[in-house]
Simulated scan of single mutants.
Amino acid sequence: FINVKFLAGNLSWLRECLDNRVGVNGLDKAGSTALYWACHGGHKDIVEMLFTQPNIELNQQNKLGDTALHAAAWKGYADIVQLLLEKGARTDLRNIEKKLALDMATNAACASLLKKKQGTDAVRTLSNAEDYLDDEDSD
């Protein structure tokens, strides 16, 4: 288990942990992962290094129901919110207070990224049936 509270941006120590196959998805007493704490602390370099791990769990909810995305939005780290969204973090998870990451966003940049992502997710769920209806070349 990697405890990012003690990393404080120490990439070489994190690299050593990863080289020794220390679990990246371990939970602390609050049910939070290393990714959660890296996002909470604004440690973009550590977030990026954790993303090099093929099994990183983006959507793990802690005991309060918060995800890494909730933490980054609440702390106002738009660059980290962007990274999480690019990796496929879910925007539809609610914490125990029924709040989405969007509800917790503390600045316009984070809110804008989250709104845009939710909009594209909604569009993607529409049926593709209309693509087949107007294909006149098919015989």
Rank of each mutant, 00 (worst) to 15 (best):
Y132L: 10
H43P: 00
A71I: 07
D139N: 15
T125H: 11
L84S: 04
P54H: 08
K5Y: 09
H43C: 05
F51H: 06
Y77N: 03
V81C: 09
S112K: 09
E16S: 11
R90S: 12
N59S: 12
Q61S: 14
L126C: 06
A105S: 14
G26A: 12
N128A: 11
L85W: 03
I96L: 11
E97K: 08
Y132M: 11
K5G: 14
S12R: 07
A101K: 03
A122G: 11
V123G: 12
C110F: 00
G76D: 06
L35I: 05
R21F: 08
V4T: 14
I46M: 09
L7K: 02
D45S: 13
L50G: 00
K99G: 08
F51T: 06
Q60Y: 07
A68Q: 01
W13Y: 14
W13G: 14
T67D: 02
A122M: 11
D139W: 05
E48Y: 00
L58S: 04
Y77L: 03
H70T: 08
S138M: 15
R124I: 00
K116C: 06
K5I: 05
N25G: 09
V22F: 08
N20S: 12
T91C: 07
N59H: 04
K5D: 15
Q53K: 14
Y77G: 03
C110T: 12
K87D: 05
R15K: 15
D103M: 02
H70A: 07
T67S: 08
D134K: 14
L102H: 07
I2V: 07
L100R: 03
D135N: 13
E57I: 04
A73G: 04
L114I: 07
D45V: 06
W74R: 15
A71R: 08
K5Q: 09
H40D: 10
E97A: 12
Y132Q: 09
Q118N: 11
N3M: 12
L113T: 06
L93P: 02
G65R: 03
S112G: 06
A78I: 05
D92Y: 09
D134V: 12
D103I: 03
A108T: 12
T67H: 05
R90C: 13
S138I: 15
A73S: 13
T125R: 14
L69Y: 06
L14N: 00
N20C: 09
L58R: 03
D79T: 04
M49L: 12
K87G: 06
D131K: 15
D79A: 06
L64V: 00
A129P: 00
L83F: 12
K117L: 08
N107K: 09
A108F: 14
D66G: 13
L100Y: 10
K44W: 01
H43L: 13
I80W: 02
A72S: 13
W37E: 02
E136D: 10
L58F: 03
E57D: 13
M104F: 02
L84V: 05
D66Q: 10
G23V: 09
K98D: 13
A89I: 05
I96N: 13
A89H: 04
D45M: 01
C39F: 00
Q82I: 06
F1Y: 13
E16T: 13
T91L: 01
A78N: 08
T106I: 01
K99A: 10
L14Y: 03
L64C: 09
L133R: 15
A72W: 07
D66R: 11
G76M: 04
S127D: 10
R90K: 10
A105F: 10
